[in-house]
Structure formats: structure tokens, C-alpha cells
Write a protein that binds this DNA or RNA. Structure first.
Length: 949
RNA sequence: GCCCGGGUGGCGGAAUGGCAGACGCGGUCGACUCAAAAUCGAUUGCCGAAAGGCGUGCGGGUUCGAAUCCCGCCCCGGGCACCA
């Protein structure tokens, strides 16, 4: 018995010239070789070393199509991986045939944790495994026949590549953000302004009164990449610190799911927050999927409101100012207490020695003094993970500090609490609590018996706790009666006038923690002098190459230990003698490496000009490939296809770097990626046995609606294809069983590119048969002779062709190859059904239409039809509009909206003729006879509808 | 809880106000074959013998006409979430 999941066995008695897997493989390897030999997919640049052949395409529009480049993992590919690559290749080939100069290539994102982890598993140096994996992946992808320009491929691990990653780092290091101009500028311009006195120093002292050290500190604190002692995510298991974006919501590492601890450490930070507004605003100008834009908006987390200063009244010592952030300054009159985050720096100073007379017992949590209560509460908080702290329906906890603060608007004294529902990392780490208009404050007030003052008139019939909506102000002094929209600016003006606060905007986005204590990454182009001052390595000395190191593996550390960069173990490398203007001196090297995201932040720029040794990218070439296609657009890659999992990390970092490069004049496009498309995933059934372990999905058989692995019954599940579910299907199996064209066609036929779809090896035969039928239309399976006839196509064929071209173009333009394939199938079926050899005038356009989808077999047929040159640059068929004009058209006739019959009428028939024809139809006549005709709707070319009563 | 997607035959999907289910898989029947596979042809939404009726998650609405537009709900997938 043969399983339906097995590819067909090659029959010995098949016709000798049938399109089989063997023939497909032969055709595919020959054409791939020929494309390579002839340089079919080399995309010429306007300038520089890759400009050969540009004259021939100079008048064409450009198209830069790109996939998110892969991480060369050791696991090999499954059929889910290339879905996006096939999608972009189909689109790129179609556009190339439609008159575009298309740039498409592929690189490898090869630095980072997974490469190290794989190297640890195999006990091999990451350099060795990385390049072996690239070679293997490149071979597997090569078999798909992707129309890439191989000259432009890059690997982020090549010194010639990361030289420029380091160069960009130095550009960022050499820049500051001018808040007034809202853009980055060279740091030298800041120095000039400070020297000239046109820009005040932070503390207002004249520049020449500052010591050299103080001046350097002022300058360094302005840099877009800077070293700072900040609370960071320390992951001892990985031996490194991580960016916020690399830590999951429950406080674990995204890679490996290890615990992450928040600890203050001195690390390199990138000042991405300076760009928060532009990163947010420019999303509106991008042609990206709405969910991705939403995720970036959420991550940036802009909220507008005000700072309000509450004067704290400590039991002893000087008064302190508690600055809170609120989005609802208009509710200030309703503030009945103030809450500090447990980590807030003022907590200790504002904790009184003893409870004030008559303190509510609920506020003390049973402790004898506020100091005891606060200390215990802070200890508890520290022990809790972020997840435990953020569980939504946890009852509110907190303790009273024993002190009060004055509400600036009415001098009312309100108690100060510490509570973990206020987070130190957001706003100012302190809030004014307005239980009447905030449900978290309401809950807290309920637990602690605090008063509620409503300051917004709730709508009639409002029944609930806090009212979060807008409405007329009440109990709010001079704000009473104002709408929320009026009250906000009014109170902000009052606060500013009385020096009690100011309007402001805050963000959830934090600066990007940029250093990692790992080996397999780009070294920083930074050295330190004897005073620990970081200095840029001169551009002329780039790249700072990653030194060889046998003992490169990270050493898992204890929770309370310090990170230990592996580069510190490289003897003779940790210091270097340089002349940085003070004569040759010994400097210490920066031992951290860059995070995995660094190399992927700019690879699209290197694709444009991969061999340039004097510049990141030649400006003319950059303008040509990335410049705005239309005025007012941002410019950027015309189509970028990849998984939605990079919605925040890679896509936000790359936008940030790009904007810095734009500000500094290195690129002309305002954004890196103009259009983004998230391809779906290929999913597959997976099976678990009774113990819940996954069994090899390819060995499972179905009997009477149940599934068995051998004799054992198994349970079917459905999920993303991959190793862990043991349901992978490899492209190599498909190449062997059907050929690459069939695999391409199958993946494109199962749905629009942005949709996830199930894999069913059983279904592949459908598209394989399509190729066989098309092959048979052109080639005699017994003799191998070409059978098409050179007689003109008849009217029916010409019409069928014109309709097909129209709909295939539509499908390919919209990246809905499934529809294009369906229309091609219809035409093939139409020609097959005639039973006579088809005319060349129809077959040739048919072959061209198939070419983007199944390029090898299309090339082979095109060649056998007598064409010497590759069809890759042949014009895609255009719609013959004249053939779409029909003399007669079949229209639907409905009675009361229900389709009842059809009549054939002249295309240009007028309404009266249409109605008469419809009435003449027997079925219709019977249905309307004897009834009152209330209305007749006639839509020429479409239908007639009789409304009867 | 909030914000995005989505829900159409046994399955993947097509149709974006005008003939629901294109195209493919699977199923059924047939040709070829000693037989099977492969290939080819016919047929296939559901109920019904037929006439006909029903049918795009559910309920309502707009319209001559709704899978498509509007309102309310249900379910599935994803994202965010004590963010003041």
C-alpha cells in the first residue's frame, strides 16, 4: 500500500519525454548554470564598479526588493523558510519582465547568540560553523532558482562588512541630537556652539571656566551613543546584559528563556529616545501592515500630559519636591494622595520615624514604624519578578510613609504612599492619585480607605467606580464647567505660571542598551585612555577585527557577579598602542561587542554598493535605489518581506540608525523600508503519542479518521513547522520528488503571501500536474517534438488569453500568486480541452506568464519554442483591450433579488431591450405572471431585477 | 480589559454591492493496465427522486439586490497591558 505522502515513484513505462521530477531537476540545474554563466540577474548600478550594463536599463524605473536576511542556523531549512523568498522572487521576476531594473539579493545575518550556542553544542569555533552554515543554506536556497545578484551578497561577520558597521557606530558616537532642530548634528558643531557661547552649558557656567574634564563630560553626555550607569537587564545564564526589547514581559531572556535581573551597571547606550517623535510620526508615511505600526506605536508609547510638583513635608529635614507625571492634569483637584514607586530616590528621605497620631491601621501593614514598614515593603517588591508585580487583578498593596505633600493647586495636604503599582521606569516614578478618575487609584483607595473627590461630571446614569471619560469639570475651582479639552491647557498654564509644573510628553521607549559581553559580535571601535575616557579609533584603522580566541565560550555567571567579556581573555589584544594626537600611547580596548541587531541595521545599504571601500554607500547609487519614488514619500526599499516577529526590534533599530545617517547626510531616503509585508507562516500537523511526546509526522498514517504511528494511536495538533514539533518537510525532499518549480508553484498557490497556510504534501500533485499539462501542450511526450502550430489563434483563444493576462497581472501585482496560478490553470485547461495542438500565439504568452512562478520550466519551453535568449528580460504579456470587448454578454435575471435565469443580449443593448429580453425568458415570465410588478432594476451589462409583490 | 487581523464546501482558498464556492486537493464513477501506481476524462456545497428549497459564525438593519456596507453579539489567531 502506498502512502499519499510519498512522492510518485518514477515509472519505467512512462513516456520518455514526460515532465517528471527527473526531467525537472535536469532542466533546473541547466538553467541555474546558464543564469549564472550569463549573469542574467546582475542588477547594474548607475555609478561605480557595478555599473556595467546600466545604459541598457537607464530609462527603466528601479525596484529594490528585499527579504529579511536569514540567520545561518545549523539546523538546515524546511519548506516554511523560503516562502517569503519565493514570494519576492516571483514579484521581482514579474517586475523585471514588466520593465523595471530590479535589485534583489540575499545576505546572512551571522553574528549573535544563536551562532555561539550552536557552536557550543558542536564544540566548534563559531567562525567555522557560521561559514559552513552559510555554505549549506546558500546551496539549499540556490536550488530554488532565485533571481538574485550574487555579487551583492553580504555576511555581517565579514571584516569588510563590519568595518562599516563600526564606521556607523563612530558616526553615531560623533553626533549629538539638537532638540531645537529635531535632528542629529556632528558633535564638533556642538563644541563650536559651546565655545562661542551661543549655546549655554548645562549648569550655566561659561565654557572657558570649565575644566578640560568638565568640558569633556559635557560633550560626552550629549553623544548619541554614550556610556551610562543605568539599571540594565543582566542575564547571568547568557553571561551578558540585554536590551529591553530582548527581555520578555515576564522578565526572561527572549533567547533561551533564562532569568533576567535588573541591576545598575555601566554600559553603552544608544540615544534612540531622541528620535521617539520622528519614529512615531513617520510611521504614518510608511506602507506597512497596520499591526506592525501599532506595535511600534505601543513600544514608543508616547503620552502627553504634565509634570506637577507636590511639595513634600517631611517630619524633619528640608522640604522636598515630588514631581509626578499625569496625562490628566485637569483632575488635579481630585488628587487625594501621592504614590512613589518603591525604588523612588525620595522614599528614604520622606519616610518618617514614627506614625503620625491616629494613622489608619490599614496604612501601616502592622509595623511599628514607617521605616520598618517601608523597608519590609521594598524587600518584598525586590523579590517579586516583573510578572508577579504586573498581574492585572492583584489586590493593591502599599504602605504610608508617615509624611504628607501639598497639592499645589489648593495646598491641601495629602498622604504619601509607596506602592508597587507605580513603576520607577515610567514617567517620574511618582503619581498623584485621583481615585475618582482612575480605576487603579480607585482600587487602592478602596483598600486603604482613602477619600474620593470626583472632578469630572460623569454622564447621566453612570454607575461605576472611577469615571475615565471626558466631561465638564466639577469640584475643581477655576476649572469648573470647562470641558476636558479646555481644562487641560488651562491647568497646565496655571501650573507653569505658578512654577508648580509644566506640560510635557513622555515615552515608554528607553535608550537602547548596546553592549554585550559576548565573543561572536562586532568589536567596538573604541579605546580608553588612562583616565577611562572613551576615544574613537580613527576611521583609517577600521575594521577593528575580531581577534581569534579558542576559549570564546561564555561562562555562565552568578546572579550577583559582574559580566566578564570574553575578549578580555585575548592575550595581547586588550591593549593597543596608538597615536591619537598625543604621540604613541598605550590604550585599553573596549572589550564588549555589539548586539546581534547591529549588522542588520544597515545591510540594505551595503547591497547597493557592496564593494565600496571609500564610503558606506556611494551617494548616487543610494539615491538611485532608495530615493523617494514620488515627491513627499520617505524613500527606502520598495518592498521588504519578512516575519512579523521583527516588528519592534530590528525594524525600530534600523529606522533609528537610518535616521541618524539621514541627518548626517549619508543617505537621501528618510526611512529604510518604504513598503513592508509580513509573509505568513507555513504550518503543519504534528502528532503526539499517549505520553505527550511528538512523533515523526511523516510516519503517521490515517485510518478511518484516526491517526496512528505504527500501531499506536496518536493525537493530531497543528502548529508552526519545525524541529520541535517533528513535522518538518525539507525542500530537498521536494526537489527530489517534484523539482523546484513545483515546490515554488505549490507554495505560491496555497494563498496570498501574507497569509499563513497549512502544508500538505498530498496537495502538491495539483500544481505538478499543471506543469505536466502545460509541458504536454508544447512537447510531444513520446517524441519530444514541439507540437504548437503557427496558425493564428481563433477568436475564442484570443479572448481567453486577454482575460488571463488581465487577471494574472492583477494577481501578481497584488502579491496574490494563488489567483494568478488559478487563471493560468484555467487557460491551460482551456487549451488542453480542445484536443488539437495549440497555437503559438497563445502558448508563448502563457509560458511567459508562468515564468515568474516556475522559471526553469518556462525557460526550457521558451527555448524549445525557438528563442535563444533567456526570457528573464522579455516583456511580460500585455492585455489586448480589443479582445476584452464582447459583442454579446450573458446577464442575470432576478426576481425579488433572487437569480432565476440568464439571457444573452448585445453588449450595447439599452435598458428597454434588456428588460424586454428578460421578460421574454420563459422561467422569468412564469414567475412574474399574475403578480404586481413594483419595480424593474436594470444594470446594463450585469442584470435585470424584477420586484414583484 | 484595550488594540489589530480573521470566520465562505470534507480541506487550501476565489468572488469587495450584482450568477457564492473560480482554481487545486480529497471523494465518486470511468478510460488505460493482468493489477496497481502514474496519467487522462466525467462528476462533486447541503437537503430532496424531482420540482424546488436552504446556504458565506450568530442576531438585526440599509438596499431592488449583502459573503461584501452599518449596528449588536459569539468564536479563533496575534499584539499590548497597574505605562499614571
Amino acid at each position: 500500500m502506498s502512502s499519499p505522502d510519498q512522492p510518485p515513484a518514477p515509472g519505467a513505462d512512462q513516456p520518455p519525454h514526460r515532465y517528471t521530477a527527473e526531467l525537472a531537476q535536469d532542466i533546473e540545474s541547466r538553467w541555474q548554470q546558464r543564469w549564472q554563466d550569463e549573469g542574467t540577474f546582475l542588477a547594474p548600478n548607475p555609478e561605480g564598479p557595478l555599473s556595467e550594463g546600466f545604459d541598457a536599463v537607464a530609462g527603466r524605473p528601479r525596484l529594490f526588493v528585499m527579504d529579511m536576511f536569514p540567520y545561518p542556523s545549523g539546523a538546515g531549512l524546511h519548506v516554511g523558510h523560503p516562502l517569503g523568498y519565493i514570494g519576492t522572487d516571483v514579484f521581482a521576476r514579474y517586475k523585471r519582465m514588466s520593465g523595471y531594473n530590479v535589485l534583489q539579493t540575499m545576505g546572512y545575518d551571522a553574528f549573535g547568540l544563536p551562532a555561539e550556542q550552536y557552536a557550543v553544542q558542536t564544540g566548534t569555533h563559531p567562525r567555522v560553523t557560521t561559514y559552513a552554515n552559510i555554505a549549506n543554506m546558500s546551496r539549499q536556497l540556490g536550488r530554488l532558482g532565485l533571481g538574485h545578484d550574487p555579487r551583492r551578497s553580504v555576511a555581517t561577520t565579514d571584516p569588510a562588512y563590519y568595518r562599516w558597521t563600526q564606521w556607523i557606530f563612530l558616526q553615531i558616537f560623533g553626533s549629538w541630537f539638537d532638540e531645537e532642530k529635531n535632528r542629529a548634528r556632528p558633535i564638533t558643531e556642538l563644541v563650536s556652539e559651546l565655545e562661542a557661547g551661543t549655546r549655554p552649558t548645562p549648569d550655566g557656567r561659561p565654557w572657558d571656566e570649565l575644566s578640560a574634564d568638565e568640558r569633556r563630560q559635557v560633550v560626552d553626555s550629549h553623544r548619541l551613543v554614550y556610556r551610562d550607569e543605568a539599571t540594565v537587564n543582566w542575564c547571568p545564564a547568557l553571561g551578558t546584559v540585554l536590551a529591553n526589547e530582548e527581555v520578555t514581559a515576564d522578565g526572561r531572556s527572549e533567547r533561551g528563556n533564562h532569568p533576567v535581573y535588573r541591576r545598575p551597571m555601566k554600559q553603552w547606550m544608544m540615544h534612540i529616545t531622541a528620535y521617539a517623535d520622528r519614529l512615531l510620526a513617520d510611521l504614518d508615511r510608511l506602507d506597512w501592515p497596520e499591526p506592525v505600526k501599532q506595535m511600534q506605536r505601543n513600544w514608543i508609547g508616547r503620552s502627553t500630559g504634565a509634570y506637577v510638583d507636590f511639595a513634600a513635608v517631611p517630619v524633619e529635614g528640608d522640604p522636598a519636591n515630588i514631581r509626578v507625571f499625569t496625562t490628566r492634569p485637569d483632575t488635579l483637584f481630585g488628587a487625594t494622595y501621592v504614590v512613589l514607586a518603591p525604588e523612588h530616590p525620595l522614599v528614604e528621605a520622606l519616610t518618617s520615624a514614627s506614625w503620625p497620631e491616629g494613622t489608619d491601621p490599614r496604612w501601616t501593614s502592622g509595623h511599628a514604624t514607617p521605616a520598618e514598614a517601608v523597608a519590609a515593603y521594598r524587600r518584598d517588591t525586590e523579590r517579586k519578578s516583573d510578572l508577579q508585580r504586573t498581574v492585572g487583578d492583584r489586590e493593591k498593596t502599599g504602605v504610608f510613609l508617615g509624611t504628607y505633600a501639598a497639592n499645589p493647586v489648593n495646598d491641601r495636604l495629602v498622604p504619601i504612599f509607596v506602592a508597587d503599582y507605580v513603576l520607577v521606569g515610567y514617567g517620574t516614578g511618582a503619581i498623584m492619585a485621583v481615585p475618582g478618575e482612575d480605576d487603579r487609584d480607585w482600587e487602592f483607595a478602596e483598600v486603604f480607605g482613602l477619600p474620593v473627590i470626583r472632578t469630572i461630571t460623569p454622564p447621566e446614569g453612570f454607575e461605576g467606580d472611577a469615571y475615565l471619560g471626558d466631561g465638564p469639570a466639577m469640584n475643581s475651582g477655576f476649572l469648573d464647567g470647562m470641558s476636558t479639552a479646555e481644562a487641560k491647557p488651562a491647568i497646565i498654564a496655571w501650573l507653569e505660571e505658578h512654577g508648580a509644573g509644566e506640560g510635557t510628553t513622555t515615552y515608554k521607549l528607553r535608550d537602547w542598551l548596546f553592549s554585550r559581553q559576548r565573543y561572536w559580535g562586532e568589536p567596538f571601535p573604541i579605546v580608553y585612555d588612562e583616565r577611562d575616557v572613551p576615544l574613537a579609533v580613527p576611521e583609517s584603522m577600521l575594521p577593528v577585527t575580531l581577534p581569534d580566541l579558542d576559549d570564546w565560550a561564555p561562562r555562565p555567571a552568578a546572579e550577583d557577579s559582574e559580566p566578564e567579556p570574553p575578549l578580555g581573555r585575548v592575550a595581547g589584544w586588550t591593549t593597543v598602542t596608538l597615536d591619537l594626537g598625543e604621540g604613541p600611547k598605550e590604550y585599553r580596548r573596549e572589550l564588549n561587542t555589539m548586539p546581534q541587531w547591529a549588522g542588520s541595521c544597515w545591510y540594505y545599504l551595503r547591497y547597493i554598493d557592496p564593494t565600496n571601500e571609500v564610503a558606506l554607500v556611494d551617494p548616487a547609487n543610494e539615491r538611485y535605489w532608495l530615493g523617494p519614488a514620488q515627491a513627499g514619500q520617505t524613500g527606502g526599499v520598495d518592498l521588504y518581506v519578512g516575519g512579523v516577529e521583527h516588528a519592534v526590534l530590528h525594524l525600530l533599530y534600523a529606522r533609528f540608525w537610518h535616521k541618524v545617517l539621514y541627518d548626517l547626510g549619508h543617505v537621501s531616503a528618510e526611512e529604510p523600508f518604504h513598503r513592508l509585508l509580513n509573509q505568513g507562516y507555513i504550518q503543519a500537523f504534528a502528532y503526539t503519542d499517549e505520553r505527550g511526546f511528538y512523533v515523526e509526522a511523516s510516519e503517521v498514517v490515517e485510518r478511518d479518521g484516526a491517526w496512528f504511528h505504527g500501531e499506536e494511536p496518536v493525537t493530531r495538533e497543528y502548529g508552526k513547522m519545525g524541529k520541535s514539533l517533528r513535522n518538518s518537510v525539507t525542500p530537498d525532499e521536494m526537489y527530489a520528488g517534484y523539482g523546484a518549480d513545483t515546490l515554488r508553484l505549490y507554495e505560491m498557490a496555497t494563498g496570498p503571501l501574507d497569509q499563513s497556510r497549512p502544508w500538505n504534501t498530498r496537495d502538491i500533485v495539483g500544481v505538478h500536474r499543471l506543469l505536466q499539462r502545460l509541458w504536454r501542450l508544447v512537447i510531444d511526450e513520446e517524441t519530444g517534438a514541439v507540437v504548437v502550430v503557427d496558425e493564428p489563434a481563433d477568436a475564442e483563444d484570443r479572448k481567453a488569453l486577454a482575460r488571463t493576462v488581465l487577471t494574472v497581472r492583477d494577481g501578481l501585482d497584488g502579491m496574490r500568486s494563488n489567483v494568478a496560478i488559478a487563471r493560468i490553470t484555467e487557460l491551460v485547461n482551456h487549451l488542453t480541452g480542445r484536443g488539437t495542438p495549440p497555437p503559438r500565439a497563445v502558448v508563448e504568452p502563457l509560458v511567459l506568464m508562468l515564468a515568474p512562478l516556475a522559471p526553469h520550466v518556462a525557460e526550457e519551453l521558451w527555448s524549445r519554442l525557438g528563442h535563444e535568449r533567456s526570457l528573464a528580460w522579455t516583456d511580460f504579456p500585455v492585455v489586448d483591450e480589443a479582445e476584452l470587448v464582447e459583442e454579446q454578454v450573458e446577464i442575470a435575471v432576478s426576481v425579488n433579488g433572487k437569480p432565476r435565469s440568464r439571457v444573452l443580449v448585445a453588449t450595447d443593448a439599452d435598458q428597454a431591450t434588456l428588460e424586454a429580453a428578460a421578460r421574454a425568458d420563459e422561467k422569468v415570465a412564469a414567475l412574474i405572471e399574475g403578480k404586481t410588478l413594483r419595480k424593474v432594476v436594470v444594470v446594463p451589462g450585469r442584470l435585470v431585477n424584477f420586484v414583484v409583490g
